[in-house]
Amino acid sequence: MSDTAPVSPGPQARPSGSWLRRAFDRPNVLGPLLAAPAALILLLLLAYPLVLGIWLSLSNAVLGGTPKFVGLANYIQLFHDSTYREAVFYSFFYTICSEGLKLSLGLGLALLLNRRFRGYRLARAIMLLPWVAPTVLSALAWGWLLNPQFSAISWLLMKLGLIHQYIDFLGQIWPARISLIVINMWRGIPYFAMGYLAGLTAIPASLIEAAQIDGAGSWTIFRRITWPLLLPVTTILLSFSTIWTVTDFQLIWTMTRGGPLNATQVFTTLAYQRAINGGSLGQGAAIAISVIPIMLILAIVALRTTREGK
């Protein structure tokens, strides 16, 4: 054993080793260095396409052509385009209805699954299935369930004597619009439920117990304790889910392609139709970019709603 005790470096001690090691020891070097790959990916995969999209929307770009700047011409044209107006309407309707239903039913499901009962773990796992199934597969399965000739739902209702002919779920304007909202809701509820479940488990049990001792009922506990504490989770869940719903493409394209008429046309399907199939890149980009202000408005509304709740 050595008789010299180890000496810990004092506050004035300089880092030893190569210049590289010394540089890595400095937070103002290491921090940006670690963030660089993620920043680069964001720049390449998000910022660049966004800027390119904005530029294309201000040009007369066509597939394979050389774009020329045309200012706001594409946006002015969209303003007069009745198909675009139909897409705007249904995008809003689809998103607001889907999000409202997903939020309330997801919260209900989470409250239900937050209780300990026999097989609750299995129930939680099953609940996730609609969320993890690939969208196209879900759409195909729903396509059969809502098929005007082979619908299992119609068949069951017929057997129960509740209807006299198969329901035309996707061939009529409002049934088609509502059907797609129901499917989107079915897919999205597990996401909300899982998020809320995590939020619920984070609420200290002592708070609930204290309220119970004070004589608060279930509704009061939910209104005064549970919901306010879930608001931060709600903001996150709602923001992400809204973005996914507004940009939903696969479900609608697989099931209706925007039909019947243009009743289920949304931003993404119309942008694809115009830019890729029709070759009008500029107009397609304008449709896609026009979503951004709407998304911002939705985000502000969501944030304000949750803040006001506080």
Binding site: Q149, F169, L170, A176
Partner: peptide, 16 residues
């Protein structure tokens, strides 16, 4: 026509 052709995509008439 059979009811429901308003929603038919390319595959539906083959199936029916």
């Amino acid at each position: 026509m059979i009811p429901g052709t308003g929603s038919w995509l390319d595959v539906n008439n083959n199936q029916a």
